[in-house]
Design a binder for these strands. Structure first.
Lengths: 140, 140
DNA sequence: TGCTAATCAACAAGTCGTGCTAACTAGCAA
DNA sequence: TTGCTAGTTAGCACGACTTGTTGATTAGCA
């Protein structure tokens, strides 16, 4: 994702207004590696700006997603999560505590075999599930 | 997934009753490579057994899933899909028509890098998205 | 045969996300 | 500074998907 300042400029360019709500969301996402859901982000935002609505958070995230500034990741755990990291990366998920981390896999592109003649792959998503060091320690 | 006959035996073993509804679902899943949703399966089942309820389909699928006889796959496309193939396999999804195929990736286990010291991977899910030969042909 | 699980219909609820409206606020260009 | 217009808000609703509940009926199987 671009920096909050660059996003402000891009929003202006596109004719979107730069509101305090949007700027707050830019700042909350900047360098955020927690893969928040819209709801989570809303809760944090509401602490700093009581009165901001969940609706606005959803809307701003959709705009950022449409502009390619955030990735929208679905780990099948209910809510969609947002990731300001738009590199070609993948995810590890702790099935105990639900924490998500970005990881890089360098064997890509992967080869596969199956009954899929002529399929043109545009993207590959890899999700590693397991137990993070913290949870392993607690359960040991 | 086991054959319908074996499933009947397993259900009996576990003290579950073998009802016509359950047997129908076993048969519909047997060799099914279409990755149906519960709803889809229900529609097909209802043609052969009018009166079967969606509730029963959901319940039987949950039982099969709990017994490890079907995989329950979430491609982030709304409904959860069920796959009677419980091998260690992955999926390709056409983003145009939504069709899902099973594929095998032999480079696994994959290595990854990132800020995830001591993470114990239990499973890896890979989803290839793109365009299937059929859709590519239509759009050409 | 009879206990008990399974099924069914019908209704509800919960989660996630979006649509709509009406009123107010505020960005930003002239 | 003004004024157009987009953005925000609350509130209500809906839709998709999935599960819970209840109460009556059916049927598996020991």
């Amino acid at each position: 994702m671009k920096t909050p300042e660059e996003l402000v400029a891009r929003f202006r360019e596109q004719g979107y207004k730069v509101t305090p709500q949007r700027q707050l969301i830019f700042r909350l996402l900047d360098g955020n590696t927690a893969h928040p859901t819209a709801e989570t982000l809303y809760e944090v935002a509401a602490k700093q700006m009581p009165g901001i609505s969940l609706r606005t958070v959803y809307q701003t995230l959709s705009e950022l997603s449409a502009m390619g500034e955030v990735q929208h990741i679905d780990l099948g755990s209910g809510a969609v999560r947002f990731d300001p990291n738009v590199d070609d990366h993948h995810h590890v998920v702790c099935s105990t505590c639900g924490v998500v981390h970005d990881v890089y896999v360098n064997q890509t592109p992967l080869q596969f075999e199956g009954d899929v003649e002529g399929f043109a792959v545009h993207s590959t998503r890899i999700v590693f599930s397991g137990e993070c060091a913290h949870c392993a320690h607690l359960s040991a």
